[in-house]
């Protein structure tokens, strides 16, 4: 008999295919379910496992209602702010995420934000969609060149390092701030700053790759934006909570920042619409891992975790041990 699985959200076709082959699942392709619907489905089908995404707030209240026959909850995401890991651990429910598989994809998108913001892609696209039909003066609508600039990275982890690798192809000088300095073989010539404040004045471009949580909440605020050189470009493909958006908007309006590229927002999807009224922003709807290849890899990795646990092994990517 195949193990029984509930999938709380739509997933790519290749992942659904694997589920059909290996699991007993009422909606192998997934459908958007509320927490109540998920609990009901798990209970009714006597499910062995749950595959979820970040839309499902998997807090202590929901975890308490998960029936005992469910042996793992696997999220198709690297982030797990939507999961109360302590509550899962307290009742010994294994939970897993999908690290590594989206590193390159997210780094590509981060660099797209850098290029799109610096080279005014939003304004240019809008001119085209309006029909163009006019020339530009030699000093008109100029962007900021990326090549050869100094890139500051807050959080030189896996994704930060992948962004740094791309930046080297553009002759950029890499600066970074982490809580701890990396070993030299991982730094690859990047300059370490023991404090964010010391690094910011040297950043022509700043990209955030820091973890969430209270220590980094609004780490970019009026004071820290003020330390960037005038005309700097700011990008964030990590977490909206890292940024005080009032301060960001003020810095974009005053011209202190040349432009910003954002894939994440403080409130999603009900983001601050003042950002959309600014010409010098390049805005994407949280698409860091949005490729068929990567979303498929994330789904497969979640299934690998589920398969491992149902075979009596520990999860590959446990969120608690």
């Amino acid at each position: 008999m195949k193990p029984r699985l509930i999938v709380s959200r739509q997933i790519p076709p290749a992942v659904a295919e694997r589920i059909r082959a290996a699991f007993d699942c009422p909606f192998p392709e997934g459908r958007d379910m509320t927490a109540d619907e998920v609990i009901a489905a798990l209970t009714e089908t006597n499910a062995d496992a749950l595959m979820l995404t970040s839309h499902l707030k998997f807090g202590a209240d929901v975890i308490a209602r998960v029936p005992d026959h469910v042996r793992i909850a696997a999220t198709c995401s690297v982030g797990y702010e939507h999961i109360d890991v302590a509550a899962a651990k307290a009742r010994a429910l294994p939970v897993s995420n999908t690290p590594d598989v989206l590193t390159e994809c997210t780094a590509d998108l981060t660099f797209l934000l850098i290029l799109g913001a610096s080279r005014r892609a939003h304004e240019y696209e809008a001119i085209m969609r309006a029909g163009w039909r006019r020339g530009f003066g030699l000093g008109e609508m100029l962007g900021s060149r990326v090549w050869g600039k100094r890139l500051g990275i807050l959080g030189l982890g896996r994704i930060g390092q992948a962004v740094a690798a791309r930046a080297r192809g553009f002759g950029m000088q890499i600066l970074y701030h982490n809580t701890r300095r990396l070993p030299e073989d991982q730094e690859l010539g990047a300059t370490y700053y023991p404090s964010l404040e010391a690094m910011l004045p040297h950043c022509d471009v700043l990209s955030l790759h820091a973890p969430g949580g209270p220590r980094t909440a609004k780490i970019m605020n009026a004071a820290t934006f003020g330390l960037l050189p005038r005309g700097a470009v700011f990008v964030n493909a990590a977490r909206g909570a890292l940024v005080d958006e009032d301060a960001l908007i003020a810095a974009l309006e005053s011209g202190h920042l040349f432009a910003a590229g954002l894939d994440v927002f403080h409130n999603e999807p009900a983001f601050d619409e003042r950002l959309a009224k600014l010409p010098n922003t390049f805005l994407l709807p949280h698409m860091g891992s949005a490729t068929m290849e990567t979303r498929t890899a994330m789904g497969m990795r979640a299934l690998d975790n589920i398969t491992a646990v149902l075979a009596g092994k520990p999860p590959i990517d446990p969120l608690w041990t």
Partner: peptide, 15 residues
């Protein structure tokens, strides 16, 4: 924009 979705605007990987 109604929020993040696992199959929304999936493009193709460049890397």
């Amino acid at each position: 924009w109604n929020g993040w979705a696992p199959t929304q605007l999936m493009g193709t990987l460049v890397s």
